[in-house]
Design a protein around this nucleic acid. Structure first.
Lengths: 206, 206
DNA sequence: GAATGTGAACTGTTTCACAGCC
DNA sequence: GGCTGTGAAACAGTTCACATTC
């Protein structure tokens, strides 16, 4: 029911609120959160309505409670459990990224087909063979899989991920993965995003 | 005038059309392109209306001409010229990625503050000191800059990029960069996107 | 007969504007 | 007085439905 756009913004609000709190604030007004998120006060209030948490007309919203309310909607669990498939340059960089953000994220393992990598630890994540995804993940709840394999292998890898019961995929391979309706796939295509930025930058250059 | 959503889809269509052509096709129907892009025939036709290029009711759209029409709207130039600032793990992986896609993308140079990196070549891109962005880029048209520095340095780096006259930024640092109106910034925040996928995957898990 | 191009209807999202509250 | 919460208005994006074309 909460719209996709609202969900995206609530996630952004959460990280901005955390920073705002860390810099010594206890309360925040909708117009301040709008300023931080490049939005409008009105839209912020609409988004926050979804949470069922109310602010105070004099002092605004209590940051702690707001963060908790967003957290309760977005991610009831403590940590997000991730596997990553494809331990190339990009895969390694991404593993490192999430590994540094522990315990917010937990890398359950990474997967590849290269015998030289299997058995090794990459940023504290043990590397297994791709065919073992189901076996390795069956005792852990995996919230999503990150795909960083070459385009030609991405669909086959996605099928194995889905076969292992994982419902969320973040795909960096430049190919659109086909799945059943009940799987959520987010595509990040570096080529496409650069073309988009280039398009708008050129448009603006007047 | 062309909506943001339409621009995003046209870029996706372009890469899908290229693949469809490479697999031996000359013409395509709107419903086929819809299938490839997880969209609807109706929406595809609406998007293509923006191009002013017309299909044929019997044989559909000629792929070559469609690609050219999208290219003409999105990116009149031959290659997209990029600089990258922040040659860490992620920066290196991204440099490699675009370097492999030459000549579609051209890395004009990369920038860091680490003396050990300056002067070196990383994926064929020479590394310079961040303070030299303006000097190095003044003789090339740079379509966008990619930021892969730590959060704390991102705003200062963005200011230098803008000072060098670059209008497009693709920011991977987990902080919202503030710029004047006439700069286009696209944020890719790995934490936020993983939270989003996790949220929807959990919702779907019924 | 099956496709395109498109006005019109519909659905989703944002902004406006203001009552109520601290 | 300036804030929140929220109907209502405005705007944006998608789908429907069908006249037209090949």
């Amino acid at each position: 029911m909460t719209s996709k756009k609202t969900v995206e913004r609530l996630i952004i609000y959460k990280s901005l609120l955390q920073k705002f709190k860390d810099s010594g604030n206890e309360y925040i007004y909708s117009h301040q959160l709008a300023e931080l998120s490049d939005s409008t006060a009105s839209l912020v209030r609409r988004d926050l309505m979804e949470l069922g948490y109310s602010g105070n007309q004099k002092i605004g919203y209590k940051i702690n409670e707001l963060i908790d309310a967003i957290q309760a909607l977005i991610m009831p669990g403590k940590s997000i459990n991730i596997i990553l498939v494809g331990v190339g340059n990009l895969g390694k960089a991404i593993l490192r990224y999430y590994s540094d953000l522990a315990p917010k994220f937990t890398i359950i393992g990474c997967f590849d087909i290269d015998k030289g990598k299997i058995g090794e630890f990459i940023s504290h994540a043990k590397c297994y063979h791709i065919d073992d995804i189901k076996k390795i993940t069956e005792n852990n709840e995996i919230h999503l899989a990150i795909i960083t394999v070459p385009a030609g292998e991405a669909q086959a890898v996605a099928d194995k991920i889905i076969d292992a019961g994982i419902k969320g995929i973040l795909n960096f391979a430049p190919i659109r993965i086909k799945t059943a309706e009940n799987i959520y796939v987010e595509h990040i295509d570096f080529s496409n995003v650069v073309e988009k930025v280039s398009y708008y930058a050129t448009k603006l250059k007047v």
